[in-house]
Structures are given as C-alpha cells and as structure tokens.
C-alpha cells in the first residue's frame, strides 16, 4: 500500500472544503425557498397545473366535451408537466437574472468549489423544487378531479425514479436555456420554447392515442417531456404507454444531453 503523502492530505482537505461549500449552497437555497419565497415558489409551480386540472379534468367532462375517465389520463401528464416546468423555470430564470442583472451568482462562483459543481448544485436544487411541485399535484388532483386520484395500481419505485430523473432533466433544460439565451431575449425565448414544450409533451393524452395523427405522434418524440409524461402514465395507470425501454432511453438521453450542455454553458457564462 502506498503511504499517505502530504499532497494526499491536501487533496482530501480540498475535497472536504468543496463538499462543505456544496452543502452551504444547498442550505442557502433551501432557506431562501422555505423562509423567504414559499408563496412565490408554490404559485409559480402550481398555478398553471391547477388550471389545467380544473379546466381539462373537471370543466370539460362536466360540459360533455370530454369523457368522465379523462381525469385519470390527465393526472400523470400534469404531474410530469409540473415536475419538468418547475425545474426548467427554477434554473433558467434565476440564472438569467443572476448572471446579468443582479450579479447575485458572483458570490456563489467565488465559493471554494469548482464552477461545474456550482452548476450541478443549481440543477439539483431546481430539480428538488420540481419534485416537490410534482408531489403536490397528487393531493390537488384528489381535490379537483371528479373521480379523485386512485393510486391502487401505482408502481411506486417507477414513480419516484421518473419523478426525480424527470426533474433533473428539466433542470438541465433550464440550465441550457438560462445560459445560452442572451438576457434581453429571455422573455421571447420562454414563449417560443415553453408553449410547444407544454403542448407536444403527451401531457394531455397518452402517446399511443395519437396513432391516427402519425406525423404529430412522431414529432412529439423529440420533446423530452413526452418520456416523463409516458413514464408517469406507466407508473400510475394501467393504460397502454410507450415501451419502458423507450421511456428509459428518452429520459437518459435528455439527462445526459441537457446535463452536459447545461454544465458546459454554465461554466462558459461563469468564466471568460
């Protein structure tokens, strides 16, 4: 066995201090969310899905424009949408603001850890917000949907895995948006990116039901949200869904692609 050298000790100390900085940043984010902006966070995460649940899941069946069972189809999609969009918004917006207008990110970038670790930390905390948003849809669905929420056929492991990985993938997408788009274009980019993301993500219908609209069905495969929605559908309901392998592949590819691009984009914005 190699004896422990002075540089080993120094490297160990460095890792330790980087790790403590990482935890310090997480503490700050948790504190800021819980103590200073719980209302802002919850309304940003939940208002849109509440209206989707109410209008599509309650009003449409009520007026006869959708079947009574539609709520059950809708719920997994809305959970997926909330998870991904919350994660996207909680990375993209703070990054745009923090890099350019308030410069708030500077203090984080000077914390004693690698810039890439700051990027990962930012994504993880945004993903955590996405997970919380997604979980809160369950009780909201119970309240809003006429049939309530039935979890009898839920695969809980699958649900948790999709919840977490979907949130991280969303945070990666947000990081790409937040670092690639110039600050003066962010509002138009949000409009141009988020609306198609919401409506082509198999959120409001199972992917398989699009068989008669083949071109659209194929198109939606390009949207990462499709895999999260279908994954949620697979975990929560017995309906026909994209194959498990396709869901896994879609989520893993999104994670790797947006995660890598996001970290790289962050490092580029952070240093010049």
């Amino acid at each position: 066995m190699r004896p422990i050298t002075r540089s080993d000790v120094a490297a160990g100390g460095q890792r330790m201090s980087a790790w403590r900085a990482f935890l310090g940043l997480c503490q700050r984010d948790l504190w800021a969310t819980i103590r200073h902006e719980p209302v802002a966070f919850l309304s940003q995460a939940l208002l849109q899905p509440i209206f989707f649940l109410f209008v599509f899941g309650r009003v449409l069946p009520e007026i006869g424009a959708a079947g009574n069972a539609y709520g059950g189809q809708l719920l997994p999609g809305i959970i997926a949408l909330t998870v991904v969009l919350t994660a996207v918004q909680n990375t993209a917006l703070p990054l745009v603001i923090g890099f350019s207008f308030t410069k708030e990110l500077e203090d984080r970038l000077l914390a004693p850890l690698p810039v890439e670790a700051v990027a990962v930390q930012t994504m993880l905390m945004a993903a955590a917000r996405g997970v919380i948003g997604g979980l809160l849809i369950l009780p909201l669905g119970q309240l809003i949907l006429p049939g309530g929420v039935s979890l009898g056929q839920t695969t809980w492991l699958g649900f948790v895995v999709i919840l977490v990985l979907g949130a991280v993938a969303g945070a990666g997408m947000g990081m790409v948006l937040g670092t690639a788009v110039p600050p003066n274009r962010i509002s138009v980019t949000f409009a141009v990116v988020l609306t198609p993301l919401i409506f082509t993500g198999s959120t409001f219908y199972p992917w398989a039901a699009l068989a008669r609209l083949r071109w659209f069905q194929v198109l939606t495969l390009a949207n990462p949200l499709t895999y999260v929605s279908e994954g949620m559908r697979a975990a929560l309901t017995p309906v026909h869904h994209l194959s498990t392998a396709a869901i896994a592949l879609g989520i893993v590819v999104s994670l790797a692609l947006f995660g890598a691009l996001g970290v790289r984009g962050f490092a580029r914005r952070a240093t010049s």
Binding site: R20, A21, G24, R28, P112
Partner: peptide, 15 residues
C-alpha cells in the same frame, strides 16, 4: 436574503 443571512451563508460556503 437579509443582511445577516448574506454574511452567514457566505461563511457557510467557506465551511
């Protein structure tokens, strides 16, 4: 954050 929190969390980053 508040002023005191600005200081406190900065120190937290440094362990």
């Amino acid at each position: 954050l508040t002023a005191a929190e600005n200081l406190s969390f900065h120190a937290a980053y440094f362990g």
